[in-house]
Amino acid sequence: MAKLTIAGETCKGCGLCADVCPRHLLALSKEINTKGYHPIAITDQDQCIGCAFCARMCPDAVIKVEK
């Protein structure tokens, strides 16, 4: 069981994290943050294995991973 915390306000919605998630659990949210971006969101928290690939790929250091 792993937990992702995403700082949605600083996310720019580039989606690079989604591409490297081995379980394809990340997708852009329908919400819009104050900068005007669709921030990334996790679609199924329970499936996350806590590999932190997403956090290592993120250019804006918005993802915290706990396990």
């Binding site: 937990k3 600083t10 720019k12 806590g50 932190a52 956090a55 290592r56 918005v62 991973v65």
Partner: peptide, 22 residues
Amino acid sequence: MAVVYEKTKLLTDKPLHYCPGC
């Protein structure tokens, strides 16, 4: 729960001005 990965304190809290995906 243990932290696997989080932003280092060697980066300030200022949001980066770089373009998305840079």
